[in-house]
Amino acid sequence: MVRKVVCLGELLIDFVPESNGQALADVPAFRRAAGGAPANVAAAVAKLGGASRFIGKVGADPFGAHLRATLEEAGVDAAVIETDEARTGLAFVSLREDGERDFLFYRHPAADMLLRSDEVLGAWLEDAAVYHFGSVSLIAEPCRTATLDAARRARELGALVSYDPNVRLPLWEHAEQARTEILEHIAIADIVKVSEEEIEFLLGLGLVEGARKLLQMGAKVAVVTLGPDGCRVLTTSSDIHISGVSVDAVDTTGAGDAFVGGFLYQLAQRGVSAGTLVDAVSDLVVCTEIFGFANRVGAITTTRRGAIPALPTLAEVEAR
């Protein structure tokens, strides 16, 4: 049985501007691109040549059909359910000159928010080497319960659990709700990936203190992204900085997801489990190989527009 990186959560359409440096209201033309953080991760793994599955729900509409086709074209096992209860989610993205983004979401509700626990088949989790989820699917029921129930089921089946808080405050009713809900589920994860800004928001602490707090809350490994400066990987016994990769960024959409896909691909390829995770990433050489690779995957993604369309192949990463 081929063990997969299994991702569950939102799958949506990103409308990305053709040029940078304009306010969202002033963008004259957008280009459609498949997106949604967990879907991006699944596609990143597949485009690198790994085995991945995405579990989610889309509307029974042309955008939903396009998203399923995009995942399948990328090589993802698309466990995508269609519904006529809501339409596929949309996100309009404005890109500043520095490549950073502003978002406007259409999710009132979106189809991905309606995924139910009983729709997540056991067979979709039984072959999981890794189960990955984010916080967007924790915002509303029934997807919140479906996400957490699948995490528990996957963990019981022996999967390593990965969690990306991926803070998107415009989607939450208020900031405190986001902070409370996101932190409540740290303990279910073996590995948590956050940015410096997310640590500050969630915990009001600096990088090292915040990462150590996440470990105290139950995570085995905290991965902190540092943008062009790379990342820090912390366990209770180690703190390793892996340098970043210098590129001319045009669009950071999906770069963090590409980074996650890069290190989950590496962990799955190496057969790292929840029981061996800490020892693996505490080794300087192994950690540098895994997360140096992930840094390159993320960096290459920023040199192209969109999320899934910008993801690199293994050959491109090795060439870098």
Score class of each variant (00 low, 15 high):
residue 270 R to D: 03
residue 217 M to F: 07
residue 300 I to Y: 13
residue 157 L to I: 14
residue 67 L to S: 04
residue 7 C to K: 03
residue 315 A to C: 05
residue 52 S to G: 12
residue 247 V to F: 15
residue 270 R to M: 08
residue 196 E to F: 04
residue 128 A to E: 01
residue 203 L to Q: 06
residue 146 A to R: 05
residue 163 Y to P: 08
residue 258 A to R: 03
residue 276 T to V: 09
residue 105 F to H: 03
residue 294 A to K: 09
residue 85 E to G: 03
residue 158 G to M: 13
residue 244 G to Y: 01
residue 118 D to K: 12
residue 133 F to H: 14
residue 41 V to F: 05
residue 58 V to D: 07
residue 59 G to H: 00
residue 17 P to M: 01
residue 2 V to C: 14
residue 244 G to D: 02
residue 58 V to L: 06
residue 189 A to E: 05
residue 270 R to S: 06
residue 301 T to A: 10
residue 231 C to L: 09
residue 284 L to T: 12
residue 163 Y to K: 09
residue 67 L to W: 02
residue 293 F to A: 10
residue 285 V to K: 12
residue 162 S to H: 13
residue 250 V to E: 11
residue 313 T to V: 10
residue 275 G to R: 09
residue 70 T to R: 05
residue 197 E to N: 03
residue 147 T to L: 07
residue 60 A to W: 07
residue 265 Y to P: 06
residue 260 V to S: 11
residue 60 A to D: 10
residue 171 L to K: 05
residue 143 C to Y: 05
residue 14 D to P: 04
residue 40 N to L: 08
residue 167 V to Q: 11
residue 9 G to R: 00
residue 24 L to M: 14
residue 84 D to M: 11
residue 224 V to N: 00
residue 148 L to K: 02
residue 179 R to T: 11
residue 127 D to W: 00
residue 164 D to A: 11
residue 320 R to E: 15
residue 33 A to E: 02
residue 62 P to F: 13
residue 242 I to D: 00
residue 86 A to L: 06
residue 310 A to T: 14
residue 259 F to M: 07
